[in-house]
Write a protein that binds this DNA or RNA. Sequence first.
DNA 1: TGTTTATGCCGAC
DNA 2: TCGGCCTAAACAC
Length: 259
Amino acid sequence: MPELAELKLTSDFVNGVVKDKVFTHISKNPEHKWMDVDFESPFTIESFSRGKEIKLVLESTETDKTDNLMMTMGMGGHFQWASRGESIKHTHLFFHCNDGGHLAFVDVRRFGKWKWGDWNKDRGPDPTTEYFLFCNNILQNLHKTAFDKPIYEVLMNQRYFNGIGNYLRAEILIRIPDENPFQSAREFINKRKWELFELCKDIPILVYEIGGGTLKDWKNPFGEVSSVRDFMKCYGNPAMEKLEDRGGRMFWYDPKWKN
DNA sequence: TGTTTATGCCGAC
DNA sequence: TCGGCCTAAACAC
């Protein structure tokens, strides 16, 4: 998906467009097989992101009812605003506004999902907004077998690295150039924990500040914000080596570690 | 025209 | 751990 930085931008975008707006109901595109959702009218929306989850807080303007619609974005989910009469292809959730427009959850591949609840307890703290908890969650669990695996695989484990995805793991590991990304996560972390943890915080923040990664299925909802585009040193770079990991994802890495 | 590829996750073995 | 879920853009021929 969109990874941590893109989720944060998506959440900002939602907050920008729903500000001072009142909604009447939610409907779902029947093409999408996932659950229907609705909420008592009239209501307001506020968005938060944590790692690769988005929380939409819906609040009745007339009663004290409130509920959280928890969403994941899959590979390309995002939000757009549609004015009265406008319809956007591949919209799967419509948050209908009393001005006739709607907030559209657009998701071509339909990998995005939603449900009522709260932050998924199987996902770890957000490295950018809960940095101390993020570090602690790893250090307290470092003895577990999950950390026997190579660091390049463990960086994709959302229980510990919530928000890190396929491009971020490549961009993080390439920035610790003298450590082999194929060694065990435990060994790697024991040696270079603070550099690793800080990169897990700082790279997503950098990408957020420059307006998101340049990704095939994802466009910055605000349009281009920055001309800084060279943070991507590794992912997708033909000068780098790549291999398919056990999850069927391409891992991009420095050719010097090819065995 | 056909094939490969894509930022992710879930559930059936 | 592995296939399945989906569409469309970018390739290959």
